[in-house]
Computed example of a mutant assay.
Amino acid sequence: MGERGGQQLVMIGSITNNVLTAYRSGLAPQAVGIPWKRSATVFFDGVTAVALTLYALFISDFLDTLNNVLTLSVAVLGPSMALYGTDILLRRNRYDGEQLHDETPGSRYWYRHGVNWAGVGALVLGTAAALLCVDTPVLVGPVATAPDGACGHRGAGRDATRAVRSGAAAHQLIRPAVNR
């Protein structure tokens, strides 16, 4: 098998491996309620993926873009983990597994129209607080530029401050929902 045959084999293997990914990506928009046919959702996802790939390869510096996305994802992941940890502490890690999987309005965890709005509010507030304190090449929050760093010292101390603030907001917002 020559060089050309090896390249073709790699291309065919890549396409074959991505069939299940394309199928799954077509299911995701339908799962959230977009009323398109599967073929339309897979096509839309494919066009979006190709556009993002072309952007990453030819317009931006891929590693810088990836680094910026990962850096900013902390602004959402930190508060979401603080929210989850606070919920575990408030419930003392006592969840009803059957009720967690019950997606009907009668479920214990249905809340209001299937959404725990107090949890959403806590996540939004935590993310907003984190974005105010973020210090990245793409975004510098106004609190991060304050003298002596009002968000805490650079690095782990600032991240711990964000987590504590998010956890405190989560505690105040979701405590009534947990105690119902």
Results as ranks from 00 to 15, higher is better:
M1A: 13
M1C: 14
G2Y: 05
G5T: 03
G5V: 09
G5R: 03
G5N: 04
L9C: 10
L9Y: 15
V10K: 12
V10G: 14
I12P: 04
I12L: 10
S14T: 08
S14C: 13
N17T: 09
N17V: 11
V19H: 07
L20N: 14
T21Q: 15
T21P: 07
T21A: 14
A22C: 07
A22M: 07
R24C: 12
L27G: 02
A28P: 12
P29G: 00
Q30R: 10
V32Q: 07
V32M: 06
G33L: 01
G33V: 00
I34P: 01
R38M: 13
S39L: 10
S39C: 12
A40K: 12
A40M: 10
T41H: 03
D45Q: 12
G46M: 07
A51R: 07
A51P: 07
T53C: 15
L54W: 10
L54I: 12
Y55P: 11
A56M: 13
I59L: 11
I59P: 15
D61C: 10
F62D: 06
L63C: 09
D64S: 13
N67T: 06
N68G: 12
T71D: 08
V74T: 11
V74D: 09
A75N: 07
L77W: 14
L77P: 13
P79I: 01
A82D: 02
L83Y: 08
G85F: 05
G85N: 02
D87H: 08
I88Q: 10
R91Y: 03
R94H: 15
R94N: 14
G97N: 11
D102W: 02
T104H: 12
P105F: 02
P105A: 01
R108C: 00
R108H: 11
W110L: 07
G114K: 00
V115I: 06
N116F: 00
N116V: 01
W117G: 05
W117S: 02
V120M: 11
G121C: 04
G121W: 03
A129N: 14
A130C: 15
V134N: 05
V134A: 08
P137G: 03
V138R: 11
V140L: 05
V140R: 05
G141N: 01
P142H: 03
T145D: 08
T145P: 03
A146M: 14
D148G: 12
G152A: 01
R154H: 07
G157K: 02
D159V: 05
S166T: 03
S166C: 14
S166R: 06
A168H: 00
A170G: 00
I174S: 03
P176V: 00
A177S: 05
V178F: 00
V178A: 00
